[in-house]
């Protein structure tokens, strides 16, 4: 059951999955498949206040807290971007805000994704992670209260 897995376990799972691919093309194809499957965010969230700044493609991200756990939904107009967010959501969604804040997201380096991202695109990736962590920060406060 994915719900019971920790962030670290999910990261390890993705790292294992990616180790099966021997070239960047298969990795991209996998990311593209994930992107095509990513559930769309509700139309009401596709506006500027949910937009992640710093990406060349448009990215919208929202998070909701349920029973102390944070769940993300996102969308993008570019498929590869969607695939990458899908990985981030897979790892972070359904966890306590505090655990999300502590996640080092090391799997991104391990799966060799960053080396295929130009600095501009890596900035976009960092912007997405920052936005996700900002949600966690916002809700971790509420949680404590």
């Amino acid at each position: 059951m994915t719900e019971t897995k920790t962030i670290r376990q999910k990261e390890d799972q993705i790292t294992d999955d990616f180790s099966l691919f021997d070239d960047w093309m298969s990795k991209y194809e996998y990311i593209i498949e994930l992107g095509k499957k990513l559930p769309l965010i509700d139309e009401t969230y596709r506006n500027e206040s949910y937009e992640v700044k710093g990406c060349q493609s448009k990215v919208w991200l929202n998070a909701e807290l349920k029973d102390g756990l944070l769940y993300y939904k996102a969308d993008s107009d570019a498929v590869i971007t969607k695939g990458i967010i899908s990985l981030l959501i897979e790892v972070l969604s359904g966890n306590k805000p505090e655990d999300i804040l502590n996640a080092d997201m090391d799997f991104i380096n391990k799966i060799g994704l960053k080396e295929h991202l130009s600095p501009n695109r890596a900035n976009g990736l960092n912007a997405m992670i920052n936005k996700m962590k900002n949600f966690a920060l916002k809700y971790s406060g509420e949680n404590v209260n």
């Binding site: 991209y28 493609s57 570019a78 498929v79 590869i80 971007t81 991202l117």
Partner: peptide, 21 residues
């Protein structure tokens, strides 16, 4: 049907430098 960003990202992996945006 394909976002320019997706096209540019993949072309870069073929050693092809284009601009997108």
């Amino acid at each position: 049907g394909i976002h320019p960003y997706d096209t540019g990202s993949i072309l870069d992996n073929f050693g092809i430098a284009v601009r997108t945006g």
